[in-house]
């Protein structure tokens, strides 16, 4: 037998094991060739430069539509990829281990079930993070080049018309706001946070579902519900306003605690329009994501810890 000093100290054993499982899940997904999507993304990011949109603008505002289009297409592709991967990959990993009985061999080692779950989730999140990072780099590069092109063109036009320097500066600031900004990076982070919530939600569903299809369907459904749950909630409360009681309030609170409200993530659309995300909003998003991710993971653990195989 191994000496106990050979094995590990309890303190860092959890972290180490979670990382081992996470790295493994990451490798597994990479070897399933999910990164091929990055090639498609490259086509979208570069292609969005050439989408000919109807121009309603005069030469003085030329080019900003293209910048908007690059951001819109890129963030759209990022959202699609990150949500699909976080749901499908999470929904796939757990049932596959049960079906192939690899789970027996893992749980027969000194691996607490929470470490296993956390590792799988972290692996999926690592994959989404790395993919988003690569997409972000590509988008930022394309946007940066295009912004300076637009800027040069606009400055030249303004100078030709003899605009005062102040007006040129303010126009330049306006163009730059449409380009690659910190808020844009914040929007990518928001995409990641939303994907993380979805991954942990899919993890929870997959601990009690019996098939990948069921997990994926339910998770996507909750994703869509998450986009209009705030509206539905408001409408419901409004209707019941006359005789609104404690029950309605409690129900609302419960719904909010359990179902993520994705309308908070509408800041992504604001960034596409060139607006700035306040730091407070960003912090709020991080906290919300952290709450849901932890809530779903702990709930998964409760279901999974009593599960028999």
């Amino acid at each position: 037998m191994m000496d106990h000093s050979d094995t590990m100290s309890v303190k860092d054993s959890h972290v180490r094991r979670v990382l081992v499982i996470a790295t493994h899940a990451f490798t597994q997904l990479v070897r399933m060739k999910v990164f091929y999507f990055l090639a498609i993304f490259a086509v979208i990011a570069i292609g969005s430069n050439f989408f000919n949109l109807p121009q309603h603008e005069g030469p003085e505002s030329a080019g900003t539509e293209v910048l908007r289009s690059i951001k819109s297409w890129s963030l759209g592709a990022m959202t699609l990829f990150s949500v699909v991967i976080s749901i499908v990959a999470t929904a796939l990993l757990l049932p596959k281990d049960v079906e192939d009985r690899t789970l027996y061999t893992i749980l027969a080692k000194p691996v607490p079930r929470i470490d296993y779950l956390a590792g799988k989730l972290l692996g999926v999140m690592m994959l989404v993070f790395v993919s988003l990072l690569l997409m972000d780099v590509l988008m930022t590069a394309v946007l940066h080049i295009r912004t300076s092109m637009v800027l040069d063109q606009r400055v030249a036009y303004a100078t030709e018309l003899g605009w005062p320097q102040e007006a040129i500066d303010s126009m330049a600031a306006e163009v730059n706001a449409m380009g690659s900004t910190w808020s844009l990076q914040g929007a990518v982070l928001a995409v990641f946070l939303r994907a993380s919530i979805m991954a942990s939600l899919a993890l929870l569903v997959s601990t009690f579902s019996t098939s990948t299809l069921f997990t994926a369907t339910v998770s996507f459904l909750i994703y869509f519900i998450g986009h209009f749950q705030a509206d539905a909630r408001d409408a419901y409360l409004h209707v019941g306003e006359v005789g609104q009681g404690l029950v309605a309030k409690l129900v609302t609170l419960l719904v909010t605690l359990v179902l993520p409200d994705f309308q908070l993530f509408n800041v992504i659309d604001a960034v596409i329009e060139g607006q700035v995300i306040p730091l407070v909003t960003m912090g709020k998003l991080v906290l919300v994501a952290l709450y849901y991710a932890l809530f779903f993971t702990i709930a998964s653990w409760f279901v999974f810890s009593d599960k028999e195989f």
């Binding site: 597994q28 192939d100 009985r101 690899t102 027996y104 080692k109 691996v111």
Partner: peptide, 14 residues
């Protein structure tokens, strides 16, 4: 489980 090794029936590994 520190002191045990298990081979399940018909195992499939990754």
């Amino acid at each position: 489980r520190n002191d045990v090794g298990f081979l399940p029936e018909n195992p499939y590994f990754y």
